[in-house]
Design a protein around this nucleic acid. Structure first.
Lengths: 341, 341
DNA sequence: CTGAAAGCGCTTACAG
DNA sequence: CTGAAAGCGCTTACAG
């Protein structure tokens, strides 16, 4: 592998000059410039990014931290991140945490080690607060996407989860439902919290009462939601929900399948709403009514925030961006008001 | 940020000694050792990976190159890659190519720049052959997963696509189908090629004739497959297929939706088989019969192959691993033989 | 307009 | 058992 030294020798200039033409960072005599360029192409030279990184103390890489890239919610975020990062010459590292705090710590370490310049975390938990706080105090940069952390001063972008849940609940209420269950995900996630609050608020505003069983977690995943639905549908009729709001579309798929297996028909006997609007949800086979979360946009904005922060530095003027959501009405809630006992 | 020098000073030893205790690479007097460790924890020191990387000429990172991480086929591969890489202390870079050759070139450059030690490409195309060849001749390491490149000497892992297609075709034939269409994806991909060959072979063995229209591409995506299905189903009855093999499950979803919209019922009037066995395919709403591709295993093996090659080096003894596939019979092909005209 | 040299933060022969 | 020093491949003040 040729190095800058080889190029300098071959073209009879100093390594400094080679560096200058490489980076176009100061005027070089045309003649020399040409010789350098020739040597570069002849020796098939490509500058070593690690050496450069060490010298300028920048890696031109960022980490994208996610609980599980296998969850169809996240790839869009990751894609957006890469699309944008790439235009700025950044490379992206992906890191699955499985929502385990020590994996998140590991992610923070990547920037401490200088492997990446900053980090986007989509899997923040309440219990990460102190670690993030300390991390930022040390001058490292982080931006939160998707999940936020209460009381933490940091750049972040989240969906308007509260209102999404309000919209979902109201929609069901307008359709005549009174027994509406809300199926939360893991605790410590701001998403569960905000959506639950929206649901609670809307239920109260509608004058509807809530049975504690209606708040049983489905872990936001397929199988958890499947099981919780079995439980919910097995409740005595007076408190058996006629509608279920699932924290995610993937969870809603579990709800739908449990209903199918129990032979309760959707939307006639059970209405279901998800969150996310995954590709699959719009498919003829599924036709799930759901609250659409603008994932690509979220990833894009998170990346911009990170880039900005990387440029300007500092620990103030943090931005918290809340993206509007949209209720996508499809076929899992019924199209018209039907009498519900 | 503390450096190794700070630690050396604070604990009154040489930087060499600090390095040795850090890496546990030679015996250090217990006393000093303790002082070093103390200094490290007091100053919150974490070694700079970039400096280390420059010195040892290894980045401890690999790239995972994919056409589109947003395609639900790939995250499992990426996850497997990260899971395994992580145990070896490697970090993983993700890179979407959109099947554009220049993006693949860009990926190769990451290793030329020393940003990563090697690269796993899941998006290889026939037209990449020369570039890969040259790349490997320069001593860089690459392993192919999912898609292979004919005539290229390289470590690789692919599914047994030929037999998968044979199994799918035979299954349909046994069910009584004679007019079986096969919907290819993009050209240049070994997947389309192998599966098409399997289909062709099985059709011939069954003594079935093929109309050229039956080989119209669906681009392996939802909308392309949707359109191609409209076309196929619009053919005059004597050559309208009664069964469609889609190159992917995502494509099969498009086939299914087109059928629904055209009011041809599955499996009664149309049988469909996909490839992949995505999570969604097993769902009650879909119940797609499909050829299962062991994605996680594939990602895992690709990563092992890369790690091995990184350790032993060399340009010989390349391994080509072919993973067995499995036909998962669900509901889109009919359960029993029905008479088909 | 251009070059010699310091230095980024490590590891690792080499010498003692 | 331990340290001084070279060197990985760059960039960038500094001097001319």
């Amino acid at each position: 592998m040729a190095t800058i030294k080889d190029i300098a020798q071959k073209s009879g200039v100093s390594v400094a000059t080679v560096s200058y033409v490489l980076n176009n960072t100061r005027w070089v005599h045309e003649e020399k410039r040409k010789r350098v360029l020739e040597a570069i192409s002849e020796l098939n030279y490509v500058p070593n990014a690690v050496a450069r990184g060490l010298r300028v103390q920048k890696s031109k890489a960022i980490s994208f931290v996610v609980s599980d890239i296998t969850n169809p919610f996240y790839p869009d975020l990751a894609k957006a991140c890469e699309d944008l990062a790439q235009t700025k010459g950044f490379t992206i590292n992906i890191l699955n945490t499985d929502d385990k705090p020590d994996r998140t710590q590991f992610a923070l370490n990547q920037v401490r080690e200088g492997k990446v310049d900053g980090i986007i975390v989509t899997s923040a938990l309440e219990q990460d607060r102190e670690h993030f706080q300390k991390f930022m105090e040390q001058g490292y940069v982080i931006v939160l996407a998707n999940r936020s952390v209460k009381g933490l001063q940091v750049d972040s972008v989240v969906a308007d989860n509260f209102n999404g849940a309000v919209m979902a609940t109201n929609h069901l209420h307008e359709l005549g439902h009174k027994k509406i269950a809300f199926m939360p995900g893991i605790s410590g996630s701001s998403i569960t919290q905000s959506r639950m609050n929206g649901y609670l608020q809307a239920m109260e505003d509608a004058g509807l009462t809530i049975h504690p069983e209606w708040l049983t977690s489905g872990e936001a995943r397929y199988s958890g939601s499947y099981k919780t639905t079995q439980f919910l549908l097995g409740l005595p009729e007076w408190k058996r929900p006629t509608a279920i709001i699932s924290l995610t579309d993937i969870g809603a798929l579990g709800v739908l399948d449990a209903a199918t297996d129990l032979e309760v028909s959707v939307p006639d006997d059970l209405a279901v709403i998800g969150f996310d609007d995954l590709f699959i949800s719009g498919t003829r086979s599924v036709q799930l009514t759901t609250v659409k979360i603008p994932r690509y946009e979220m990833g894009s904005i998170a990346t911009s925030l990170l880039m900005e922060r990387l440029e300007k530095g500092g620990k103030s003027d943090f931005q918290e961006i809340v993206l509007p959501v949209e209720l996508i009405v499809r076929k899992t809630c019924g199209k018209r008001k039907t009498e519900i006992k």
